[in-house]
Simulated scan of single mutants.
Amino acid sequence: MSEHDDFEHEFDHRWASAAEHKEPSARARMLAARWKDNPPEPVPFRADPGSAGPRRSSWKSTALVLGCVLAVILLLGYASLRSP
């Protein structure tokens, strides 16, 4: 008998799918109980575009990254010259 047959024998998916009553998950039960007395506020599908904060332009970010890389290269070069 193959491993797949053992799994099918141990848990019959067709029998489980045909169940008349399906119990909700523990998280679904917890949220339903919590929201019964205190329902959540409606949330828009997309966030307000003004709430993200200021964005840097791509060239400034690129210059910042390249500057940091250059600084690390120079620091490592200086450290290798100083070591005997």
Score class of each variant (00 low, 15 high):
E41D: 05
A18N: 13
A26T: 14
A32V: 01
C68L: 09
D12L: 12
W59R: 03
M30T: 14
P42I: 02
D6E: 12
A63C: 01
P39G: 06
R82T: 10
E10A: 13
R29K: 15
A18P: 02
D37R: 03
W15Y: 15
A79T: 07
A52L: 07
L64V: 01
W59C: 01
P39R: 01
A28K: 09
P84H: 12
P42S: 04
L74F: 07
A47F: 05
R55E: 11
P49L: 06
L70I: 04
P84S: 13
E8K: 09
I73Q: 00
A16E: 14
F11I: 12
S83I: 02
L75T: 01
S83P: 00
S83F: 06
E8R: 15
P44Q: 01
R27S: 02
H21P: 10
L76Q: 13
H21A: 13
E3K: 15
E23V: 12
W15A: 15
A63F: 01
S58F: 03
H21I: 15
G77P: 12
E23L: 15
A71R: 02
S51H: 06
E20S: 14
C68W: 06
D6M: 12
S80F: 14
W35L: 00
L75W: 00
G53Q: 05
E8I: 15
A47Y: 08
R34T: 00
S83T: 03
D37Q: 10
H9N: 15
A63Q: 02
S61N: 10
P44Y: 03
D37P: 01
F11R: 14
S51M: 03
E23W: 12
V43F: 08
M30D: 09
A52C: 00
P44I: 02
D37Y: 07
S57T: 11
A63W: 01
A33I: 07
W59A: 02
S58I: 09
S51N: 05
S17F: 02
A79Q: 11
E20C: 14
F45M: 12
M1T: 13
P39A: 10
V43Q: 11
R27Q: 06
F7R: 05
S51W: 06
G53E: 06
R27W: 04
M30P: 02
S80W: 14
C68K: 08
G50I: 03
F11E: 05
A18T: 10
H4T: 13
D6F: 10
K22E: 12
E3L: 12
R27K: 14
R14N: 06
R46M: 07
A28D: 11
S80P: 08
L31Y: 04
A71N: 03
L76S: 11
K36T: 07
E8G: 15
D37C: 06
D48S: 14
R29C: 09
D37H: 05
S58D: 08
V72Y: 01
R34V: 00
S25K: 09
E41V: 00
